[in-house]
Design a binder for these strands. Sequence first.
DNA 1: TTAAAAAGTTAGATAAACCTAACAAATATA
DNA 2: TATATTTGTTAGGTTTATCTAACTTTTTAA
Lengths: 218, 218
Amino acid sequence: MVSQTEENYLKALFHLTCESEHKIEAGTNELAVYLEVKPATVNDMLKKLKEKKFVSYEKYGKITLTKKGKSIAVEIVRKHRLWETFLYETMNFTWDEVHEVAEQLEHIKSQKLVEQLEKFLGFPEIDPHGDPIPNAEGEIKKIVRKSLFEISIGAVCKLVSVKDGSVAFLQYVGKLGMGLNCKIKVISRQEFDGSMEIEVNSQRFTVSQKFANNLFVV
Amino acid sequence: MVSQTEENYLKALFHLTCESEHKIEAGTNELAVYLEVKPATVNDMLKKLKEKKFVSYEKYGKITLTKKGKSIAVEIVRKHRLWETFLYETMNFTWDEVHEVAEQLEHIKSQKLVEQLEKFLGFPEIDPHGDPIPNAEGEIKKIVRKSLFEISIGAVCKLVSVKDGSVAFLQYVGKLGMGLNCKIKVISRQEFDGSMEIEVNSQRFTVSQKFANNLFVV
DNA sequence: TTAAAAAGTTAGATAAACCTAACAAATATA
DNA sequence: TATATTTGTTAGGTTTATCTAACTTTTTAA
């Protein structure tokens, strides 16, 4: 049996390592910050996860997921994103409301439910934030995407996902009339601070570099 | 904040008192048996629930739910039955599979989700076992029903719910080709042990008194 | 290259939900 | 009514997930 808490640690490790490019290991403090607990707590849990062969790590060393640990993590991510899709598509939730509830739903234990949910949703490949949904075998389709900041002036692109899915950010994006698959035209860019002028639905906005870096487009 | 465990105690009390006719209070042992924990554990929890004003009880006295406690319990029952309906109607679960997963889903905290789920399901009034689903105000429609055992010979009735919803029983019922709303004709009854011969879908079976008492019909 | 800072670890504590074993009160019955 | 049985309580212990505070190792930078 894998506890809900253990699942959350494995999921966090997956996001911090496997899912971020260039990184395949994490540290105790890093995990602690991510999970909003103290490093000492992470340390305790790490011992248990190591015992269960879900992570490999040595004292003062870095943490990586084992095959077993990764497969559990992927299953949680799969459930999380399927539930987000369900909430968005079927339960009329908005972009920024889905995450919190999916954090609870992802821990429901029922193989059949996950399979039926996936079938009901028509085997979706991306969730409402544009992130890929792992299939039943744990395979994840790579998505080629650039940040909005990298788009050249005059080009038109389509919003496919967000990097930081915080409620504040998603609500801001929504307020500008933007959503998944919306078209964005890059009008100009300031050399000084990297801010950009963009056009969405015939309306023009100026957004910061930080904002543009948070949006992935194709 | 009400913990998942607290919710389960309140729900158990609701089933044992409010929902069973002739009874409005429960004892420590009774609750312990129902929840499959030891009486000592129930005792500990009772102190906490009393502290929180969810139950009223005095040392060596009987336990009853307060208004506050009852309204939490009803909300859990409402969620449980809505989720059961969802699993049965939308996720292709069978009669006997829904309970276990609904036990998990009933603890998901999201007002919006419950409301949307209810709307999606078309404001159902009974769950897949024929039990009434409380509405958003906590009101429960009384269902007039008799046990199959009380039906007179020659009469035809309709199965509306089951008393004991255990997997073993539900599977047995299913195997006889019976389900919610199926028609049952009473053919004969044995004086000796109360067993009855019934006809369902033109097939005849002999069932025990215990079995017949577990089925509610109209 | 060594000292300061950052990162990681250990020991001891707490709260929740459970347990066992011993005891006390209430109820049922001889 | 007295005693046996059932029911309920208390005290003390365990596990899980968390904490704080003190300590150690590693890394960084002067």
